Simulated assay, not measured.
Amino acid sequence: MNLFKVSMLAAVLAVSAALSGTASANVIGVKTIIIKQNAAAYSQPYLQVAEVIAVQAGTGLDVALASLGATAVGSSNHPNSSAASAIDGSISGVFPNIFHSAGGVNDMLTITFASSFDLSGLTIFGRSDCCSGRDIYDVRFYDATGGLLFTQLGASANNSAHAVAVNVPEPGSLALLAGGLLVLAGMGRRRG
């Protein structure tokens, strides 16, 4: 690598690092969230979610609340359970006050917001009275057109709090990655 290429890479990294220091972490334009059970928990293939809290960037509002127009649909429902329990504002993880699927490795919970929102955080509460080994989730964020925005695999609420905060991407980190890839692509073209 010559001195010019090293200087370019250093400049891109410096700008990206500066951006990441001032930018907040957000997923932009989220309309729908789909939660599935992670393969690590498939020995007991039941999806169970006590509550989903989706924090709108800037306002701090939980836009996943049914009272704010969000809807929840389960691919299947265990008797005495409703998908609506995951967006009712209660973090009680005691059955039947949770969403509990009927069972199957492809069970999912789909939460759709009243409109598209920028999210600064997402917390999923699992079941607290039993079977918390099932509470490992794959979470996908989609925009209004159904385009995939972000995926978090293996988010585990199998802990003493029975909750997991999904790590949303930081725009600065994404800029750092994109900038680095552009520099590497440019270096590859110069060799040819």
Rank of each mutant, 00 (worst) to 15 (best):
Phe125Leu: 09
Ala114Gly: 12
Ala39Asn: 14
Gly121Pro: 09
Gln56Val: 12
Ile87Gly: 04
Thr59Ile: 06
Ala72Ile: 15
Leu148Ala: 06
Leu119Ile: 11
Arg140Gly: 11
Asn97Gln: 13
Ser92Gln: 08
Leu122Met: 08
Phe125Ala: 14
Ser120Arg: 07
Gly103Asp: 13
Ala70Arg: 00
Ala66Asn: 07
Ser85Ala: 13
Arg134Asp: 11
Ile91Asp: 14
Ala83Thr: 10
Gln37Val: 04
Asn77Glu: 15
Gly93Asp: 06
Ala40Gly: 07
Ile53Trp: 04
Gly146Phe: 01
Phe117Ser: 04
His100Arg: 10
Gly93His: 01
Gly89Asn: 12
Gly126Pro: 12
Val105Pro: 11
Ser120Ala: 14
Thr59Arg: 00
Val105Cys: 11
Ser132Cys: 11
Ser76Glu: 12
Met108Asn: 03
Arg127Ser: 14
Thr59Asn: 04
Ala86Met: 03
Leu65Met: 10
Tyr137Arg: 01
Gln48Ile: 15
Ala50Arg: 02
Ser132Lys: 09
Val52Lys: 01
Gly103Pro: 08
Asn80Ile: 12
Gly146Ser: 05
Asn97Ser: 15
Gly147Glu: 04
Pro45His: 03
Ile53Ala: 06
Ser82Val: 13
Gly104Pro: 11
Arg127Ile: 15
Leu148Met: 05
Val94Ala: 13
Tyr137Gln: 04
Phe141Leu: 05
Tyr42Pro: 03
Gln56Arg: 10
Ser128Cys: 10
Ala70Asp: 06
Arg127Leu: 14
Cys130Gly: 13
Phe141Thr: 01
Phe99Cys: 02
Gln152Arg: 11
Ala40Thr: 10
Pro79Glu: 14
Leu153Pro: 05
Val49Pro: 01
Tyr137Met: 03
Ile98Ser: 05
